[in-house]
Design a protein around this nucleic acid. Structure first.
Lengths: 134, 134
DNA sequence: GAAAAACCTGCAACAAAGTTGCAATAATTC
DNA sequence: GAATTATTGCAACTTTGTTGCAGGTTTTTC
């Protein structure tokens, strides 16, 4: 009932599609996934368009973050362990292509770069070799 | 003749299309731009496909960097003032949508997050309000 | 400089991501 | 449970980016 509670708390209609999408994200074991993957997991239960719109709602309610784009597709993950100003960094292996969430790596927030700029959010992506490929 | 020299040095064929694309990037005044913008600037002189393939060549030769994706399109810029391991950070205004290159802001390279990970490259994106919108 | 080799380019066709409008359906509210 | 409000499915569409192949340029070689 975790998912149901999250939706309630965010003031969103609690629909079958939303529960299913949140479940997909929960089962992604912390890895950002893309709409087409979710769509494939849900089979014919829900339309592709519904998945897109559902993700939009969830992002808008700040339950889900649009993390990055890869292979021409946005990747999403549950907004766990993220502060308002900074999500955890992500590490993508240049060899196997897998992405890891570095939830334990803290990176200091950048200072305002020039007079007048107000930094609200910082996103860090690392690239390199993961332990399996190194 | 700047562009011509760059291509020569990189060992690339010096073609009209490549000179034109490099010129577009030079004239972008340091802002990352997307292929469709370049294509529009070049008018009917070159095919859309040629722009994509030209950018691929330039990226492959490390003359140009694929900086980030926005509005479902890759954005490119000349590989000026970038170290091997880190490009300058980019700042995108959440209000007006403009992106600024923060060439003067130095961000320390992240340490290897866990035993076994080898970090080769780091990318930082900042979001917030630019001086015009703040 | 001309011929040969190596490499680019345009065209057409295609694939995939994401968006929009609208009618039908489901979740809340009272 | 009826009225209200929000969500969903479908079809059609836009845009980005890719591929194959024939024809055209740039370099290299002599």
């Amino acid at each position: 009932m975790e998912a149901r509670a999250m939706l309630k708390a965010a003031g969103l209609y609690c629909t079958a599609a939303r529960l299913a999408v949140v479940d997909s994200l929960l089962q992604a074991s912390g890895r950002p996934i893309k709409p087409s993957t979710i769509s494939a997991q849900l089979g014919t239960r829900f339309d592709r368009v519904t998945v897109y719109r559902t993700l939009d709602s969830l992002v808008h309610a700040d339950l889900v973050h649009k993390v990055f784009i890869e292979e021409r597709a946005c990747h999403y993950e549950l907004a766990h362990r993220c502060s308002k100003t900074q999500c955890h960094p992500h590490f993508t292996c240049t060899c196997c292509g897998h992405t890891h969430c570095l939830t334990q790596l803290k990176i200091p927030m950048a200072q305002s770069p020039h007079l007048g700029f107000i930094v609200q959010r910082q996103q860090v992506r690392l690239e390199g070799l993961c332990p399996d490929c190194a």
